[in-house]
Design a protein around this nucleic acid. Structure first.
Lengths: 335, 335
DNA sequence: GATCTTCGGGAGAGCGCTCTCTTGACATGC
DNA sequence: GCATGTCAAGAGAGCGCTCTCCCGAAGATC
């Protein structure tokens, strides 16, 4: 593919009757250029349709003006319809747009994919890396941080590395939900927890445990992986083991949707016999039968804040190590 | 940010005792290098942890090894939970991974965003551009094609420009769905169509019209925009205007989900009084009340095929102008 | 009026890589 | 034995940009 006379700085300079350096100054917004010259340059740029060659710029500035967003390809959260993935991306995208930087999206599912991500990011082909929804302890974020490459995670890194992260207040949100169940007179409150190798799974379970314990109630725990199928299975499991339960806090809306169906099939009325509360406030939540009471988390805002933190790091500023966003209990009919 | 002694080709060459050119040959997989020398270079690369500087490479090769995926930020399809967005991305990502190229994701919602996308893509900062789910006639794809930049669209471009595209067989899928309703004895079949400025909306409506007309039945059309809210409104509208309807083909599962609820609220039983068929086969479809019969489309495969076509174009090959993937009727309980 | 600042603008050196061209070593042909 | 062909490896010229000097003109200072 030939560039076919794509104009260069040189061409603009000739046209405007100035030097390359001056054009560069104008293009990059330097103030030390006389008004008339600046205008002449702008005119030449417009006439020629000049667009800077980013590769050339990167080569000398050592910046790429792009950041990577790494998501685990196999995560159910990412490819189910819980809107986590689009929400994060939208948030990230908005902030990057404001900063005029590009978003390079990388899915790290397979070992090969992970290796590829490692190679690409450690190779400094991006100015910073955002990790979303990490599974277990991934060594890559810490490695990058060690190499001096800006990194921000979604959710506290499980290996305890002191990397900056952004997350929602899982524990607080869940506590409010469970307390709502208790206030409604429920006493045999179960939970369907998320996977124990993900922060969201761990923290939401912790929130349930704390609140239930504080009220002097017994725990009833089943575990899923945030998907509907796992939610249905966990609900059946709970009904088997604790047929007397009168409420369930479910760690994701998707699992809650399946739990509602399982309860219906088992002849339990919601909320009369069993109250159900989910987590996420996905769009579907308002359309379940009955509409789902749930804990709303500001997914898009997570993406935005992660990006802002990352851009600050990339600019050499320091950031607070943790940013925790609040959640809100959305009351519908299921509890 | 200093590169802090990040090794260059030069360093590897010195270490291996060869010239820069030879290292380049080895790194890029040339065969005309003696075995022992190749090994020495590989050893030096490993010892130094050398990673090629992509900016430098791009500067001379005029390739960027990355492609852009442009999505309309405001599209409901993108940011609702119909999995269109993640599905496409996953497909694109898989193919790009195989080709060792990067995915630059751009959301073109606002006019400013569109301008930004235009600037970036026409500036040849990517080797090709994928357009997903275009609204109305967007001049950008044709412009890019004219500039010689490879472009592939999802769905036939509405302005009739002969750009290569990949899509599913909307008409065929819908025909099968409507025929299924007819075969089931339904005669007063309505439809909730998608937006008339999107290919998916137009084609699905066309499929309905053709099939209904071929059977000598009357049309009953309401229009939505693929979202749940619009689906509920359209369903109410249909019930008002055609209280006698005995079936509805709904152009998206999300709208169908809302339609199911509206029908329930109106006291109509599904499928006894009214049969309902959706389109998409999103995950939610299996969890509606009753489970939704729907037309499945291979979203991920669309992403893969778009990418393959684009990579072919970028490699200078020619591709067939249209690739149409087939759909499948998934029978559940709603029809 | 001579010297010193200040500041706008130009010259030119790379950034790290690829790729063409060239060289040198060796095999082959007459 | 010399010319010719073959092929591996090196030399070196940029790709388009930024940025550090450096220069010269204009204003300030005494």
């Amino acid at each position: 593919m030939r560039t076919a006379g794509r104009p260069t700085l040189e061409a603009v300079a000739r046209r405007a009757g100035v030097s390359r350096a001056t054009v560069s100054r104008v293009v990059n917004g330097s103030t030390t250029v006389a008004e008339e010259i600046r205008e002449a340059v702008h005119r030449a740029v417009a006439e020629l349709g000049y667009v800077p060659n980013l590769a050339a710029r990167s080569l000398v500035t050592q910046r790429t003006d792009s950041i990577a967003l790494v998501m685990p390809e196999d995560a159910n959260r990412v490819f189910s319809d819980d809107q986590f993935f689009p929400g994060i991306i939208r948030g990230v995208s908005q902030e990057l747009e404001a900063a005029d930087k590009q978003l390079v999206l990388m899915l790290a599912g397979s070992p090969a994919g992970r290796e590829r991500v490692a190679r690409y990011t450690t190779g400094r082909h991006v100015d910073g890396v955002l990790f979303a929804s990490l599974h277990a302890a991934d060594p890559l974020p810490a490695l990058l941080a060690q190499l001096g490459i800006p990194v921000v995670c979604n959710g506290r890194p499980l290996d305890g590395a002191g990397l900056p992260y952004v997350d929602v207040d899982h524990v607080g949100g869940v506590s409010r939900a469970v307390q709502h169940l208790i206030d409604g007179g429920r006493r045999r409150i179960a939970t369907i927890a998320g996977p124990s190798d993900m922060v969201a799974g761990i923290e939401r379970l912790a929130g349930y445990r704390q609140t239930v314990a504080a009220a002097g109630l017994a725990e009833r725990v089943a575990t899923g992986d945030f998907t509907r199928e796992s939610g249905a299975a966990a609900m059946r499991d709970l009904l088997d083991r604790h047929p007397d339960l009168d409420a369930v806090f479910v760690a994701s809306d998707l699992m809650a949707q399946a739990a509602l169906r399982t309860l219906r099939e088992a002849g339990r009325r919601v909320p009369d016999d069993v109250a159900v509360i989910g987590f996420d406030d996905t769009e579907t939540a308002a359309y379940t039968e009955p509409p789902l009471t749930t804990v709303r988390q500001p997914i898009q805002e997570i993406g935005r804040q992660m990006t802002r933190q990352l851009l600050r790091l990339a600019a050499g500023e320091t950031v607070e190590p943790a940013l925790v966003l609040s959640t809100e209990l959305i009351r519908r009919d299921s509890a």
